[in-house]
């Protein structure tokens, strides 16, 4: 293949043709694995497809059903609760860990690695371990509570506690990501700014509040969007640890979508749920990107 640098008689098309050829394999994979299924899902959401009986076009019926479906509304509430519960503590802990590990001290790299390790573990394996940790009679979590003189708790068995237990595990898993992203952000703040602040009489807390946190605002927005989008899609840990129970207390949108499709074979209805989730996530991504761009400008 030859590359042309856009001579007068060989317009941009020749140059672009090369680019399109290079992009074609990736675009094809993207189309087949992402765009086509997404379009198919949106299409399915207007039908009553179940693979067990003839498929009919039902218009907006699935969406209207969602509006009055109490179980779906519970899943939306659960998902929002989980998202809020995971996002805020993950960001705060990630920021504190990053600020602490951005200083020079012995074993700094070891601490960074330890905090980041949960991110690298397999979700299913981690979830299985956490089931053991939350085990009501011999699990380490209750062992810790008892050793502190507190009563043991039915972590995954109580409708009031199961979601909190899932949130704790998600924060443990995700705050390493937040830490790494914040560390990268911290390293972008020039040392001279901190020195100027020290000379201006700012103490450590004032520097954190007035300099570090505001200067990390675009990183924080980015992280928030990532975590929200990720939390909206939670499935694996719930599948392994609670199965959506007890009493539907940990049933989130994606889990309910899975059950509706593969448990009750209502693929059309599940597709409508999926489409709603897709547009909510898209909305968050667009708003997040816009805010970040505005911040950069």
């Amino acid at each position: 293949m030859t590359f042309r640098s856009g001579a007068a008689d060989a317009p941009a098309f020749n140059q672009n043709l090369g680019a399109y050829l290079f992009l074609a394999p990736a675009l094809l994979i993207l189309f087949l694995s992402l765009l086509l299924p997404a379009a198919a899902t949106i299409g399915m959401s207007f039908t009553d497809i179940s693979f067990l009986r003839p498929t009919n076009f039902v218009g907006l019926d699935n969406y209207l059903r969602l509006l009055s479906d109490g179980r779906f509304q519970q899943a939306v509430f659960n998902t929002s609760y989980y998202t809020l519960g995971v996002t805020l503590p993950t960001m705060v802990l990630g920021l504190l860990a990053a600020v602490a590990l951005n200083r020079r001290f012995p074993f700094r790299v070891a601490f960074r690695t330890i905090f980041y390790l949960p991110v690298l573990t397999s979700l299913i394996a981690a979830a299985v371990v956490w089931v053991y940790i939350y085990e009501p009679y011999s699990g380490p979590m209750n062992g810790l509570l008892v050793s502190l003189g507190l009563p043991p708790q039915p972590w995954l068995q109580s409708p009031n506690l199961a979601m909190t237990a899932l949130i704790i595990m998600a924060v443990w898993r995700d705050f390493g990501t937040a830490m790494i992203i914040y560390l990268a952000g911290l390293q972008d703040i020039p040392e001279e700014i901190y020195e100027a602040a020290r000379l201006d009489g700012a103490g450590k807390f004032a520097i954190l509040r007035r300099i570090t946190v505001p200067m990390l605002s675009s990183v924080t927005f980015y992280l928030m969007i990532i975590l929200i989008v990720q939390s909206f899609q939670v499935f694996g840990a719930i599948y392994v640890m609670t199965g959506g129970g007890p009493l539907g207390s940990t049933e989130t949108i994606v889990f309910q979508m899975y059950q509706t499709a593969f448990g009750y074979t209502e693929f059309g209805y599940a597709a409508a749920m999926s489409t709603v989730l897709f547009f909510v996530i898209l909305l968050f991504s667009i708003v997040g990107t816009k805010i970040m761009r505005k911040g950069e400008a």
């Binding site: 020195e195 100027a196 020290r198 000379l199 201006d200 200067m215």
Partner: peptide, 20 residues
């Protein structure tokens, strides 16, 4: 004495202004 406790003010080469 710490930097903030000395009766000095400094102007840096790269200005070191708070961009936000």
């Amino acid at each position: 004495r710490q930097a903030g406790q000395r009766p000095v003010a400094m102007v840096f080469q790269n200005y070191a202004l708070y961009p936000h």
